[in-house]
């Protein structure tokens, strides 16, 4: 079941959601068999930033019905630490690599993209726009104009595909996707987590150390599917669909809604090998159901 994304050949259409699988830690826990049984067809790194980050204070997790709210806060070694320590290890994975970056200004973004694009291990770059631009105060990915300015600044820096990860916490994600496409993005991915919060039992205080967090898991699947269908209708570039995908049937639904590839996030927490199971289930569905419409079909716009 091979696939193709922005000119990169993949052995299948299953990615991981950024920040939901740490291949380096998983290799410690499971050993090198992880490489033989690698659960994804393209690996997306956790989002990195220019400066190292500790992440948010614990607690960082709150379980909800069919999902969780997290306030992890993008802990990472920073650009230099990532390039020196993590990237060589990620280069050993048996699948192509996409690095996810987040900048708090356009200069930071440019620094990240230029440095990451230079490295041979990296085939694609994902731009996580779910954070405020500290210069303007707007969440980059919530505003079409802000998104356009950022992508226009980054586009000339590399010929490697740029994927814009959309936030669902926007009035009109379709408009943001159109702005990204017009500014030269090669693909869009969605959805990121939905803002959420929980109160600590028996108190009137927030449970999460950061106060609020982001909801993921099957609880968001219907919302994600609607956004993927809408965005796929409005842009010509490929979309990568995610949000609560837990079975091959879910993956098939996102492909039918117009996604060119899908990503598994929270389900990997329940089963580290979920990506492999979902791929096998999806393959059986694509084989058995002749009525299934692959993403390339023009009829997808009927959705």
């Amino acid at each position: 079941m091979s696939a193709e994304l922005c000119g990169v050949e993949l052995r299948g259409p299953i990615l991981n959601g950024s920040g939901t699988f740490d291949a380096i830690a998983a290799r410690k826990a499971f050993g090198d068999v992880l490489l033989d049984e690698f659960p994804f067809d393209l690996f997306v790194s956790k989002t990195i930033t220019v400066a190292p980050r500790q992440g948010n204070p614990p607690p960082r997790l709150w379980e909800t019905p069919a999902g969780l709210v997290n306030s992890i806060g993008l802990p990472n070694k920073g650009l230099r630490g990532f390039l020196a320590e993590d990237l060589p290890q990620l280069g050993e994975l048996p699948v192509p690599l996409c690095v996810s970056v987040m900048g708090f200004s356009r200069d930071e973004l440019a620094e990240l993209v230029a440095a990451v694009a230079e490295r041979d291990e990296v085939e694609l770059i994902e731009l996580n726009f779910s954070c405020p631009n500290v210069e303007t105060g707007t969440i980059m990915g919530a505003d079409p104009a802000e998104t356009a300015l950022s992508v226009e600044r980054l586009r000339p820096l590399t010929r490697k595909p740029l994927i814009v990860k959309l936030t669902p916490n926007a009035t009109d994600p379709g408009a943001v996707a159109e702005a990204a496409e017009n500014a030269g993005a090669d693909a869009v991915s969605l959805i990121n987590t939905l803002r959420g919060m929980a109160l600590a039992p028996g108190t009137n205080r927030p449970w999460l150390g950061a106060g609020t967090g982001g909801q993921s898991g099957p609880a968001v699947r219907a919302i994600a599917l609607a956004q993927v269908a809408e965005v796929s209708r409005r842009v010509g570039i490929p979309t990568i669909g995610m949000g609560g995908i837990a079975t091959g049937r879910d993956a098939a639904d996102f492909l039918a809604a117009g996604a060119a590839a899908v990503a598994v996030g929270t389900e990997s927490f329940r089963d580290p090998a979920a990506g492999r199971r979902i791929a096998a289930e999806l393959e059986a569905i694509l084989r058995d159901e002749r009525g299934f419409l692959p993403a390339a079909s023009s009829e997808r716009t009927a959705l």
């Binding site: 380096i24 830690a25 998983a26 614990p58 960082r60 802990p75 929270t266 990997s268 580290p272």
Partner: peptide, 10 residues
């Protein structure tokens, strides 16, 4: 959430 380093939640 995961037990194997994937989520950074613990």
């Amino acid at each position: 959430a995961c037990g194997y380093g994937a989520c950074f939640g613990c």
